[in-house]
């Protein structure tokens, strides 16, 4: 007796769905519950208090580091997207070069920590950048400010997340046919004009998606700011991570994690609304498939 298609499908998918339910959804729910509990002398006590949220929202430190995380996130995501677009455009419309694709994949799969380490040595006081600039006579003494600055953090994060962002933009551009550019050129626009007037509006949802995903991942990345940011490297992520390691106030950390999540969500919707109002993002109802 053969089982019906949908039953077989459900049975086959069940282990994965179950696994993700137990190890992703349940933990998220527990974390959410934690955010209302209280912590007393390294013990977590089930409770229902809002002090974790209220305390964070009224804490100047929380706002300072969150602002820092958002600003690093926005800067990095903006630069990353700006750099990703020409590469993706080249890959999709000019030459589907395997070499370029594999260079991107190579950097994407090269170790996260190794890349942080690379930039640390590159930007250090005796680092490659300083020695090169010194020898070229552009500067006359090493610039210490390269390292432990927002500049160092941003450039490293751009380096880390650019390959991923390029692949996202490639995916969203791939859905737009080359013919559209040709048609726009044929109707008299320049190639940059064709991008702005034809490609960008059609790919807007994908581009905003790529921007937001980069933003969320960057804003939540606390290792890079910690290693390269010095005193300016304090972000919400680090604050949260420390709650779960050093100080040990898990409920507070949980609340801050959800606050950060909410802030990201708010920025996403703000961006989407701005896009809609400026007319860049057009909401189209999905075409119905014919029966």
């Amino acid at each position: 007796m053969s089982l019906s298609k949908s039953v077989t499908g459900s049975l086959l998918s069940a282990p994965t769905v179950l696994y993700m339910a137990v190890f992703f959804i349940v933990p998220s729910l527990i974390l959410f519950a934690y955010s209302f509990w209280s912590a007393a002398s390294y013990q977590v006590v089930p409770d229902f208090v809002l002090k974790n949220y209220l305390g964070s929202l009224t804490s100047p430190l929380f706002w300072k580091v969150t602002f820092n995380a958002i600003s690093i996130g926005l800067w990095t995501a903006t630069i990353t997207l700006i750099l990703a677009i020409p590469v993706a455009y080249y890959l999709v419309y000019v030459a589907r070069s395997q070499t370029i694709l594999y260079l991107i994949l190579l950097t994407w799969f090269s170790s996260y920590l190794v890349r942080i380490y690379a930039w640390r040595t590159l930007l250090g006081t005796n680092g490659v950048l300083n020695t090169v600039l010194l020898q070229l006579g552009i500067i006359d003494h090493p610039v210490g400010a390269f390292l432990f600055s927002s500049f160092a953090v941003t450039i490293t994060l751009v380096h880390i997340y650019l390959p991923f962002c390029i692949l996202l933009v490639v995916a969203s551009l791939s859905e737009i046919k080359r013919d559209l550019i040709d048609a726009a050129r044929d109707l008299g626009t320049s190639s940059i004009g064709a991008f702005c007037k034809v490609i960008a509006p059609n790919a807007a949802n994908g581009l905003i998606g790529a921007f937001m995903l980069t933003f969320i991942l960057v804003a939540g990345d606390y290792v890079t700011p910690q290693m390269l940011g010095g005193s300016s490297g304090q972000t919400t992520g680090l604050l949260i991570a420390d709650q779960f390691r050093k100080t040990g106030n898990w409920p507070l950390g949980a609340a801050q994690a959800f606050l950060m999540f909410l802030v990201s969500l708010a920025i996403y919707f703000a961006l989407l609304t701005a896009g809609r109002m400026s007319g860049l993002v057009v909401h189209r109802p999905r075409k119905k498939k014919e029966a």
Binding site: V17, M20, F23, F24, I30, L31, I216, G220, F244, A254
Partner: peptide, 23 residues
Amino acid sequence: IEAMSVTPIALPGLFVGVSLLVL
């Protein structure tokens, strides 16, 4: 399946890490 698989990719490792820790 899609929702379950895409969401974790769109979240920082920090979030996944601490929620597993509390679990």
